[in-house]
Design a protein around this nucleic acid. Structure first.
Lengths: 339, 339
DNA sequence: GCGGTCAATGCAACGGGTTGCAATTGAGAG
DNA sequence: CTCTCAATTGCAACCCGTTGCATTGACCGC
């Protein structure tokens, strides 16, 4: 811990102390090869000694780069729901790591609105160089429209079939198919899909489910439980309502768009006295760390968030360099536990 | 979405278009009362029309304020452990909200090291105006030393008995006491504390536990299971080892420093054939949303992270204004479920 | 008709780095 | 003993807003 005498704010101050000019200090601190190693050492030590560090804002202004990436996530409005969306925090963890390694700062944002303009101005004002979106949300028109601007961004979510923008996402289709095949193999025929089909990735999962089921010999029918969000609580409530409908046929299999939803569904099924997995099989999505400790341990579709995080970062950096990155997908596996 | 003709970067450009000077544009965009409403309207509409937004870095440089707060959290090294620390993400959610309301950006950081110098330079370089730390980590010497500098910061964690810096934390002592009293009421006498006493908040919880137990008539003894981190996995592993010691007396009550640890402990107990709560009671800490869905639903100490978040933000803003904020504590309750 | 006040706007000096280009210097080349 | 060249370092312009102070009219009251 250096002993500071007083606040030295400017590069000029250090320059004076070192008997050199401001540009020399600038270069020295940047470890430029132009500067004599001795001078460099002297300057560095002086700067350290006086607790000086370059003004980041001045640098950003001059270089016109902020070295900052905005991460936009839909934080749940209620704190209590946070744990129902742990998947995004896991992803945040991995993405942040990737950015730090590349010496970029992480600016955490929640969408003020899904107005492309607010994101444009975020870039125009140089608060961030690029944006990583976590999830498309219901409908992705705004993303398509954002893609028509100069804003560099990548999205975690379902691939856009028109490829208007770059996405990284799990292979939703295959994930759904794996679940469908599994159900078919178990001889299930009354399948319920619990999720929100307005979200592109959810729709893809559902499509895959259909194909997977049809791959079996038997015919199976799929019904839907639309959930407005992906929290355990909502899923629980809606599923309870679903089961209470008069004359409702109980599903013998449920594929949920996320593990949280799967857990909510299981709670409701249990309350209704449905045996799991005897009467009804359940498969979730994401393989949240909690999934294996749930009772009964949850069968689910797993994807590698670590890889997802690096891909997102990598693609964004491509975008920053002006090349249009190709979308990518991370593989999915079925993890069979006890549901 | 305004139709932009070309990239207009500078305030001068807008000024020219509006036939006014740069300062006028500046003031207009800031909604200064100095400017004629008509002029203001004209300028605003032109700016919008041309997709102009002020360069944040220039503004930050000139005003010498970054309107940014750094949030430092110990992100788990392994993505798989993320869900074992959901508490901090919950807190992050609440803190971020509070900051956004106050028009501040959130800069997400992981500690490069617990070297106060790196935080000093973060402030000196104007990347952030202040810092919120999530947890003290083992030992808080570095925080005391940071308190001797000009860095404005507040900490989520245990109150520093020397009050060298401002903390907001749950009432750890009372939390522990509640658990102790509960165990005493249940007639438990061989109590195990599972946590890492190097963390000040953990030590306080353990202290409270002792007092609470002694409040009962019977005498009880406390032993310790030191966990290196707060993940379910680690707790599970260590507890398994603990139970496997030759001649080990099994605890009839366990108080865990966090819910994740409690869950890990319960898994190990179950594997060892210990009945919960018949043979052994378990109480966790934090009341993670998952706690109530665990099997069996976990008894735990609950604290209000929402309030915690606002307090942290509020205190930090006091610190930013130069007044030294008083530490605060958020109340804790015992939530009795089935363990 | 004149000093005074108020509203609206402009001038110019910052804030603290970065960088293209020029300048200096010493060494080795011819 | 010049000449060239590389290694260092300095000059000055520039990045883009913000703000204290001056300026300009217009309007007011006497």
């Amino acid at each position: 811990m250096p002993a500071r005498k007083q606040k030295l704010t400017s590069m000029d101050d250090i320059a004076r102390l070192a008997n050199v000019s401001k540009p020399t200090v600038s270069r020295a601190l940047k470890d430029s090869p132009l500067i004599n190693p001795e001078t460099k050492k002297r300057i560095l030590s002086l700067a350290r000694q006086h607790g000086y560090s370059v003004n980041w804002n001045a640098r950003k202004l001059r270089t016109n780069r902020s070295n900052t990436v905005a991460v936009v996530m839909h934080l749940p409005p209620q704190a209590s729901e946070t744990a129902s969306a742990p998947f995004f925090f896991q992803l945040l963890n991995d993405v942040a790591r990737g950015l730090w390694i590349r010496h970029h700062d992480v600016l955490l944002c929640a969408p003020e609105s899904d107005d492309p303009y607010s994101y444009e101005s975020m870039i125009a004002s140089k608060r961030a160089d690029g944006i990583i979106f976590f999830g498309q949300g219901p409908g992705d028109e705004w993303l398509r429209s954002l893609a028509r601007t100069r804003v560099p961004f990548v999205v975690w979510g379902a691939a856009d079939e028109r490829a208007a923008y770059c996405t990284v996402g799990s292979d939703n289709f295959k994930g759904g198919m794996l679940a469908g095949k599994r159900f078919a193999a178990l001889g299930r025929s009354r399948v319920l899909f619990a999720g929100n089909r307005a979200h592109p990735e959810m729709e893809q999962r559902r499509q895959g489910l259909g194909i997977g089921l049809r791959a079996g010999d038997r015919k199976a029918e799929i019904s839907d439980l639309e959930t407005s969000d992906f929290t355990l609580e909502t899923a629980h409530r809606l599923m309870r309502g679903y089961l209470a409908r008069p004359g409702a046929a109980r599903p013998d299999a449920v594929f949920a768009g996320s593990d949280s939803v799967a857990m909510g569904v299981i709670l409701a099924l249990r309350e209704a006295g449905v045996g799991i997995p005897d009467e009804t099989s359940v498969i979730g999505y994401n393989d949240l760390p909690m999934a294996q400790y749930f009772e009964p341990p949850l069968s689910t579709i797993r994807q590698d968030t670590h890889q997802a995080g690096s891909l997102l970062v990598e693609k964004l950096f491509q975008a920053l360099e002006g090349v249009k990155p190709a979308s990518a997908t991370v593989p999915t596996h079925l993890v069979i536990r006890e549901t």
